[in-house]
Design a protein around this nucleic acid. Structure first.
Lengths: 186, 186
DNA sequence: TAACCCATGTAACCTGTTACATGATTAA
DNA sequence: TTAATCATGTAACAGGTTACATGGGTTA
């Protein structure tokens, strides 16, 4: 359900095609949210059926026509209703949590390797997000409206990666303590 | 895909029926992972078809027979293979992140209310997990095998709720600073 | 000449939720 | 007598992934 709202939100500022949206979801919101173009096209036609967005065709020569969408009044109202309704926490479906529970069947070293890989990944992402933060929002105290929202979600992203860095290190340390390396690692 | 592995993991220690598993997913692993009984029954029959689990019927009088499952050798091997293969981070699909991006269309006060609700929820859950931690794992340094894995996942849960507490407060503060309450709240 | 970008989609499939269905037993 | 527990499932739908399809234009 939330993909629909993410699309509506993106369409508020500007008319966008499905193709544009798919790219957009790789950029701003897309730091957290991934949606494939297939899914976006599907969702857009559903939204159009419900009259929450309006389509407009832009003819092009030498390549397929673009179909751009904008939010309707009904779409805006729908978005506001949604924002007022209680949001429920997304379920956490992390493979690494399941692997933790599988410890004992699976060697501690295997899990530790996974944790260290995740650590490296989280570090990279955190740095990337922090660079973005410094570049786009040098003065957070002055932010308001749309920009403030983007800043807050970036902060959430940074905190999220921080969580992974810290937790994976805690896991790694405890797993190593339990199963010390024997050779080749001083 | 990961539900299958969660089920296999749970079945390693003991034979369980679909009904048992559904309850189990409300307890230990279930602090993070939710699965409905419908989904579990479906998954179990798929696992049986692939010979990763074996079924055994326990006849009962006056209520439906139980069908209990145990992991096969192939199931164990499958689990180990999975644990060795690179785990990919689960996508984050949080409504509240989308709402952040919708700020400007949606009043700051609405978002702030959502954040404070989430804060209260996260506090409750964190306390619950911490009580569990203190009760089940008074001496973390001594843990190994299965118990260590459960401890680590609990720690992950605590950190996760901590993230929500901190982030929601950061958001709440910035949203309030931007849109100060006018009346009735000293 | 190969690979990628633009721009749209279809089809099959897997995962997960909601609602419905049965029918006896036990506790409030 | 109402509701909950035990124990199984089916069916319809929503959400999401992967693979396939088209076809000109641009860049290496």
């Amino acid at each position: 359900m939330a993909l629909a709202h993410a699309i509506l939100t993106a369409l508020v500022d500007e008319e966008l095609s499905g193709y544009d949206l798919a790219k957009r979801f790789d950029a701003s919101l897309g730091h957290f949210w991934k949606a494939s173009h297939q899914q976006i096209y599907k969702e857009l036609s559903k939204l159009e059926q419900r009259s929450l967005v309006a389509a407009r065709v832009i003819e092009q020569q030498a390549r397929p026509d673009r179909i751009v969408y904008s939010v309707t009044e009904a779409g805006l109202a729908h978005l506001r209703d949604w924002a007022g309704a209680p949001a429920k926490p997304a379920p956490v479906k992390e493979d690494l949590l399941v692997m933790c529970h599988a410890l004992g069947l699976v060697p501690a070293e295997t899990l530790r390797t996974q944790m260290m890989k995740r650590n490296a990944y989280a570090r990279e992402r955190m740095e990337m997000l922090q660079r973005l933060e410094a570049k786009l929002f040098p003065d957070p105290a002055a932010l308001k409206g749309r920009a403030l929202g983007q800043y807050l979600s970036l902060r959430g992203g940074v905190r999220y990666e921080r969580l992974w860095i810290d937790w994976s290190e805690e896991c790694s340390a405890l797993l190593e303590a339990r199963e010390p390396r024997l050779k080749g690692h001083p």
